[in-house]
Simulated scan of single mutants.
Amino acid sequence: MSDNSHAVHVRDGWIGVEPTVLIFDVNETLIDVEAMSPLFERVFADTRVLREWFGQVVMYSMTVTLCGCYEDYFALGRGVFSMLGDIHGVKVTPSDLDDLEHGMRTMPAHPDVEEGLRRLRDAGFRMVTLTNSPPVAGGRTPLEHAGLAGYFERQFSVDTIRTFKPAALTYHLAARELDVPPSTCLMVAAHVWDTIGAQSAGLSAGLLTRPGNAPLPVHGLPQPNIVASDLPDFADRLIARWRT
């Protein structure tokens, strides 16, 4: 492994070869979950409930996969929102739930994303997305709403196989559809659970330390091959490592 100071040292045995395909998570990695803060302020009078909600949606997506069940990500989001209403003693109306789902579908891109994607595209990397969000029949995906779809060769959803990340099957779906070995793919995500899942499935991984996210320094778990503060930072580090 390179001794590039920008990269986290990777334990022997975890993938660290040159990637040809970058697979991007969407929610929070590319699009800004914090854009829904006004809804949580209005309903719960506390924007901190947004983070509680987001963490619970992730937890229950993993739960239904482990239990062999499936409901799509938007349905889980609505259910967890109602559950938190009961927990916090707040009345959640059908209109609130509709506003939540609209927010989940229409979050804007982080301001740094387009510049980072341009740098990676110009460096010759293939780019696709892999999201827990389902496709929208007859409508635009969250990525399309954010104006980012044109940067990506394909958009993959776990809804295709009714299994949420970080199950290995989800990452292998993207590699199989692209007809490339998992070892040639690098997962880019803002969440350590996603990078651990990808690396355990035979991919390499990059972590974006969006606010509220950081590496998990636990011996025995795979550490991201690259850690960066935002997408241009990640692009510069990846290009410096594999294109110069």
Rank of each mutant, 00 (worst) to 15 (best):
R118S: 08
M62H: 03
L22P: 12
G89M: 02
R176A: 15
L208Y: 08
D86K: 12
G124I: 05
D32R: 13
V90L: 07
A205D: 09
A205C: 10
L84N: 02
L231N: 12
L186W: 05
H88D: 01
V49T: 04
C67P: 06
H6G: 15
Q56K: 15
A167M: 06
T163L: 15
G202D: 02
V180S: 02
A7M: 12
R126V: 02
G68H: 05
S2I: 09
S61Y: 00
S157Q: 04
T93L: 12
A205Q: 10
I31E: 08
Q223Y: 06
I31A: 07
Y171H: 04
P166R: 10
P182D: 04
R154D: 13
G55Y: 08
A198Y: 03
G139Y: 06
P19W: 02
F164R: 00
R11I: 12
A45V: 10
I226L: 14
T47G: 13
R48Y: 10
S5L: 15
E153K: 05
E177I: 13
V17E: 11
V136Y: 00
L143W: 01
Y73A: 04
A228K: 03
G150Y: 04
R243T: 10
H102L: 11
A235K: 06
D12P: 10
F152Q: 01
V158A: 09
E114V: 00
Y60G: 10
H102D: 09
L221E: 04
E144A: 13
H9F: 13
L238A: 15
F152S: 03
A109M: 03
P94S: 00
T20D: 07
R78Y: 07
A198H: 06
W14H: 13
M107N: 07
T93D: 06
F40N: 05
A7P: 09
S95V: 13
R118E: 01
N213K: 14
P232K: 07
L207V: 07
W193A: 09
A235Q: 08
T93N: 08
A228W: 03
